[in-house]
């Protein structure tokens, strides 16, 4: 049976791991390569690296980091942040990234999804969607939830699927950083809307939140950062508990 996936997310700035709480107040949580190796050993199914460097210099360090991760880590990983062209993706895949995640560049030019899927295959194209629920409507946002777009979450999800996205990474900006659980209602509706895998993101605080996002939110994978980085949830303990709850998991 295909298992549900547990994905630690590492925010990277200038080659170092950081984690945003509601995307501000960053705290350093270590060297990304060491952290990645440790997560692979501890039972993570996959990793996501999100480059939040604002400078060109910072972005360049990302390629070195991706190379080192590919060299030393034996599980798949996705790289996101600031990717806006076929060349960006080509470079990252050549450094050994398995998948790339695009977000604002897909909003700005949706054709990019088609181009990447055609050139590299849907399997390596993850479209990240940050959305915020405002007056009962889930609206897609950019720049860490600060800039609203005209896109409705569910329509946009359908569009990215039809353009060739292989997976959706959905972050609820209402839940992110709150540790109060994932946005399971929206996730379950997403699962009904599209037929590609969905990674739930934003809100992980307890083991029960992961159980709920798989059972109620119908997520295929769950992503979290600080609860893993600061040792609040141990991945093996989490997986044992998920298994006890009859959720298919790799142990």
């Amino acid at each position: 049976m295909l298992t549900k996936r547990i994905i630690p997310c590492l925010d990277i700035k200038n080659g170092r791991t950081v984690k945003g709480v509601n995307f501000v107040n960053l705290r350093d949580a270590g060297d990304p390569v060491e952290l990645a190796k440790q997560y692979a050993r501890l039972g993570a199914d996959e990793l996501v690296f999100l480059d939040i460097s604002a400078t060109l210099e910072g972005r360049k360090t990302m390629h070195d980091m991706v190379l080192k991760v590919a060299e030393q880590v034996n599980i798949p990983f996705t790289v996101g942040g600031g990717i806006s062209s076929i060349k960006d993706v080509d470079d990252l895949l050549h450094c050994g990234a398995d998948k790339v995640s695009i977000n604002s560049s897909a909003i700005k030019r949706p054709e990019l999804i088609n181009e990447l899927a055609d050139k590299f295959g849907s399997q390596c194209v993850v479209v990240a969607i940050d959305a915020k629920q405002i007056d009962n409507e889930w609206m897609v946002h950019l720049a860490g939830g600060t800039i609203p777009t005209k896109h409705y979450l569910f329509d946009w999800a359908k569009e990215v699927e039809s353009r060739g996205a292989g997976e959706i990474l959905f972050t609820s900006m209402n839940n992110d950083g709150t540790k109060s659980g994932f946005a399971n209602e929206a996730l379950a509706k997403l699962a009904e809307t599209v037929n590609i895998p969905i990674i739930a993101s934003g809100g992980a605080g307890t083991i029960q939140h992961f159980i709920d996002t798989f059972k109620i939110g119908k997520a295929d994978a769950a992503l979290a950062a600080s609860v893993f980085h600061f040792g609040e949830i141990d991945i093996i303990d989490l997986k044992k508990e998920l298994k006890k709850q009859h959720i298919e998991i790799r142990l």
Binding site: M1, L2, T3, K4, R5, D45, E46, S122, Q123, G166, E167, N195, I196, P197, D220, A221, R250
Partner: peptide, 13 residues
């Protein structure tokens, strides 16, 4: 087929 999510992505036995 469309009875399952495509692609299959992840760990299987």
């Amino acid at each position: 087929s469309k009875a399952v999510k495509v692609p299959q992505m992840g760990w299987n036995t």
